[in-house]
Design a protein around this nucleic acid. Structure first.
Lengths: 165, 165
DNA sequence: CAAAATAGGACTCAAATGGTCCTCTTATTG
DNA sequence: CAATAAGAGGACCATTTGAGTCCTATTTTG
């Protein structure tokens, strides 16, 4: 259905690592990358983006590294995703530029999409990093959909370059 | 945030056209394309896919065309999207192939995603084509998120090749 | 039979993503 | 003070994906 970019996916996993340790704990890109089994440059790139977005605080220099800028329950999935893939709406014209929507039916439908899009945003906004990092206890919002994905036809996107890193 | 493909977007608009007329009304690709201001081949392609998925019934030959296979309130957004962009999960490994998730934290997070993904599926499954096609009355599920998208920075993706078609 | 539709692909082009690398700045520490 | 270990910030390439077009059947109707 809708797919997140991998970077957002990775980003959440990375952040979850912080959430699972002591509050304010600091980690550097190399260790983090190792922990999550990601190539260092990738992890690095993502961490930088998260820092730029203000979700991580960074410390340069020899004993440098990153730590969460806020408490894990103060960070929402929506923020993370925004930071990593930009606040793109569900349809193209969530912007405000309606130059292309010159037909009524079309824009009517689009209006509805904005509501839906907003609902999703809100849902994602209500799920905290803490609840993602915690044990199987489903967080408040995450508890909504209990379905195990009946027939997901498996389009293996991963497992393509696993030998080395 | 999450973006639908354009084809899914178009598909919904196209289907909405049917929903807005008499029940069982038939339309051909050309007229439909004109109504929605879409190039004919595009509309055609999408209609074919919708027919293949069983959402539209098709009639070949001279007076042929398409009509809804079911009543508009019996068709959900989830079905339409599935038909047009395949049932891809939110993360890559919604499949079942967990060969790449060799680390605990990672798969824990992934598990959460499946819940969320399921919730979205369910939400989209509860919004009918009828409610998309209807007048500004927000449908039941669409009413959830009332937020007008506070700060959507507009990354114009459209308006790139508009001169010709 | 001719014309008007849909069915089903193959194909092309452009853009987005994933991923790597290089250079610069900042801090620590011997 | 110099070496080293970090992060910051881009530039860059390759692959994939998505949009859109077109061509050749196959069905109908008149």
């Amino acid at each position: 259905m809708f797919r997140m970019t991998r970077q957002a996916d990775y980003g959440i996993v990375l952040l979850a690592c912080f959430a699972q340790r002591e509050e304010g704990d600091s980690l550097n890109a190399r260790d983090l990358a190792a922990e999550v089994h990601l190539p260092v440059p990738m992890a690095s790139k993502i961490l930088k983006a998260l820092a730029r977005a203000g979700l991580l605080a960074s410390q340069r220099g020899v004993k440098g590294g990153y730590r969460l800028a806020r408490r894990p329950d103060e960070i929402s999935l929506a923020e993370i995703i925004d930071a990593l893939e930009g606040p793109i709406g569900i349809t193209d014209c969530s912007s405000g530029d309606h130059s292309s929507c010159d037909i009524a039916a079309l824009c009517a439908v689009r209006g509805k999409w904005q509501s839906i899009s907003g609902a999703m945003r809100e849902a994602l906004g209500s799920i905290s990093l803490a609840s993602m990092a915690g044990p199987p206890e489903p967080g408040p919002a995450a508890a909504a959909g209990r379905r195990p994905l009946p027939s997901a036809p498996a389009r293996g996107k991963r497992a393509r370059k696993e030998g080395s890193p």
